[in-house]
Amino acid sequence: MAGFDTKQIWKVFFILLAITVLEFLIALTPALEGIRTDYKLAVNLTYVVLTLFKAFYIIAYFMHLKFEKINLIYSIALPPVFVIYCIVLVLYEGGYWNGIREENVTSNQKIEQVENHAPEHH
C-alpha cells in the first residue's frame, strides 16, 4: 500500500520533532523575550501555523489520508470549514465580551470615586 514505508514514517517523525523543537525555541529562547511581549499576536499566530503543519503531517501520513481516494479526502477536509467559521466568530465574540468587562470595571471605578467623593459636596 502506498505511503506506508518505514523510511517515510521516521521522516515524518523527525519533521514533527523539528517543528516541536522550533516551538520550544520560540517559547523559551531568552533573547526573544522582547519579541514575545511586543508581538504577542504574531508569535501566537506562528504557534498556530506550526500546529497546523503538525496536524497536516499527522493526518496526511500517520492517518494515511493523503493516500486515500480524493472523495474521502474531501469529505474529511471540508467539514472543518464550519469549525473555522465558528472559531472566528466566537473568538470575535469573546473579544467583545472582554470590552464589556473592561467597561464594567472602569464604570465601577467611577461609581466608587463618586461615592467616595460624595460627602465632600454636602
Binding site: C86, I87, V90, L91, E93, G94, W97, N98, E102
Partner: peptide
C-alpha cells in the same frame, strides 16, 4: 467537533477574561 467545541469555549472565555 467535540474537542473543537471545548477548545472554542476555552478560547472565548480566555479572550473575554481581563
Amino acid at each position: 467537533f467535540t474537542f473543537t467545541a471545548l477548545l472554542l469555549g476555552y478560547g472565548a472565555l480566555r479572550f473575554s477574561a481581563l
